[in-house]
Nucleic acid binder design. Structure first.
Lengths: 110, 110
DNA sequence: TTAGTATATAAGCATTAACTTATATAAAAG
DNA sequence: CTTTTATATAAGTTAATGCTTATATACTAA
């Protein structure tokens, strides 16, 4: 697979409002699956499937802690992705766009 | 429509190998539809449909000259797109990836 | 006007993609 | 061990996408 396919494949994943929102939030810190379920108002399997796609491409990585799974960005070697994410609104503005306030969501996942 | 939708919508268009290749080539100069038909080896309507999508989004603009239509980039106000295009191989490398050589294609469209 | 060429649009088909519900796995609590 | 909670996977449905062929439009040339 050449560079054009690689970039196009990555951008196809970013070209979804939900996944792009997740990646925007992940710039600032890790988030657990349950938080995303709450923020994006889609089913838990839907969140899990989005994250799997990003994980398979190496754009995010997971970290299991007890029964929770936290996801974090992994784009140090992907400038075409980092460049896009840099153009997104910050966490507070994203949460506002999504109709959520800072600090909402599950408080249990440490 | 908010900023997240806008960026996601644009990236959805870039997440296609053919359109991304077109935009990569358009960084250097204008190209006419007939050249793209030759380079990407898809039908003329397929090329036309890709370009229409990019045009509707304001990512490219057209310039009619005689019976030919030339397309050019229009991303001065779209940093999230320009940032991605900057990460692509240059014209010669793109043409090579696509199995084409510089200077091939229709010579008529001035 | 008629014929030829370049591009655009329309219609139809095959594939992909995103969601849902149902179920499986894994960890924690009792 | 059994129940509860968090996440993942499977299966199925619906919508969107990219291609093709056929046709329409626009310009050029005879």
């Amino acid at each position: 697979m050449n560079r054009l396919d690689e970039v196009a494949g990555d951008l196809k994943l970013l070209g979804d409002k939900t996944r792009l929102g997740m990646l925007g939030l992940l710039r600032e810190r890790e988030w657990c699956v349950c938080e995303f379920v709450d923020i994006f108002e889609i089913s838990q399997p839907a969140v899990s499937q989005h994250l799997r796609k990003l994980r398979v491409k190496g754009i995010v990585k997971e970290s299991k802690r007890g029964q929770w799974v936290h996801y974090s960005l992994d784009v140090a070697d992907k400038p075409h992705i980092a460049a896009v994410l840099a153009q997104l609104p910050d966490t507070a503005a994203l949460l506002d766009l999504l109709g959520k306030k800072q600090g909402e969501g599950c408080a249990e996942c440490d």
